[in-house]
Design a binder for these strands. Sequence first.
DNA 1: GCTAGGCCGTGACAAATGTCACTGGCCTAG
DNA 2: CTAGGCCAGTGACATTTGTCACGGCCTAGC
Lengths: 214, 214
Amino acid sequence: MRGAAETDEAGGPRGIRLLIADDEHLIRGALVALLNLEPDIEVVASADNGATAVEQAIATTPDVCLLDLEMPEADGLEAAARILAEVPTRVVIVTRHARPGVLRRALASKVSGFVPKSTAAEDLAHVIRDVAAGRRYIDPEIAATALTAERCPLTDRELDALRHSRSTMSVQQIADRLHLAQGTVRNYLSSAMTKLDAASRHEAAETAWQQGWI
Amino acid sequence: MRGAAETDEAGGPRGIRLLIADDEHLIRGALVALLNLEPDIEVVASADNGATAVEQAIATTPDVCLLDLEMPEADGLEAAARILAEVPTRVVIVTRHARPGVLRRALASKVSGFVPKSTAAEDLAHVIRDVAAGRRYIDPEIAATALTAERCPLTDRELDALRHSRSTMSVQQIADRLHLAQGTVRNYLSSAMTKLDAASRHEAAETAWQQGWI
DNA sequence: GCTAGGCCGTGACAAATGTCACTGGCCTAG
DNA sequence: CTAGGCCAGTGACATTTGTCACGGCCTAGC
């Protein structure tokens, strides 16, 4: 009743089979090296984007998947959802920017672990072991902010408009992209700015992103 | 006549003494583990910001310093300049965003190596050995773009104004920060936008940043 | 000593952005 | 069936931002 990490095939305990996905080659390689040093961990697959991470997970059925949140093709959350739908495994998300809303979404898609990149390297192996054993690990710092932070007060369309406001597009361009009238977009942005107490759409987009809402 | 990596104290060849600075604990730890695996490399110091990197470099006089560009307190370039002014060592800059203008500034401050984080982990040790041996290593991809990219056409004040335009400040706030009149800042931003062929100050700030000018 | 160019500022104007009020369609929960 | 929320839009308006032309100050170079 512990987890998938113990005695699947042969008898007796064996190592934790791990998948690592991170788009930065240097980081990925370093993590592979670091974790392969642990006697009870074996890195069986690695990927540089979400899509191949999913393929690899299906092909190798690892015990634990360590996924970077910021990845091209499919980000960590999307990859996690797809993997967990197909493979009996556990997922740990690791991220540079620990945003409360993202944690919320991660937990909603049954992720088992959530750690920022500011975690000590030595602790990562502990987390992986915990998760492999069926436990969960959430960085306490992020958990605390996620609990105090209130839920997103924004509507879907407001979020759409804000998403595009993070780039340098004009209101008109955003309107074109969303197939809306320019005035409509302005209204959404204006109401979002009111809700978020921001002085410009850029500021609103920034705080929404910080909260992990977009 | 090779470099500082050979026979400083005892007789016979010994390992390359390395300093590693990166603000993300996980990455730093992983890099330390990875590079300590190399038989001829020994990590003698590590730091999580530019300021302590300088202190550590002075205290340990490593053969090579591996500095992340994006760090609090003092960024990689500033730390490199301060270290090279005080310690007979060599510096390798590693960065997530390989921006041509930053490479130019790095070379101006006598940095010996410049690699993006998309480098393969295995190659990093080669780079460190090259640099320790007195050679230089510049990522060929970045070198190419840096050569084709033209030099910054912007004036100092224009750069000041653009720097602040990357955040969500209003023109008035930027003016206050720079102790200038609001109209003056608008003029700077306007001329910068013309030079960079941008439709808004945000777009101008973005391209200036991409080029490594700010 | 003149001049070119960067720097700092002003004023006027046009365009983009943000605010407000209001209309109407659609859906859902009570 | 109706009150309320979200969606989409319009029009009027104030504010901010971007453009342009201009003047004065200072410094480096000729």
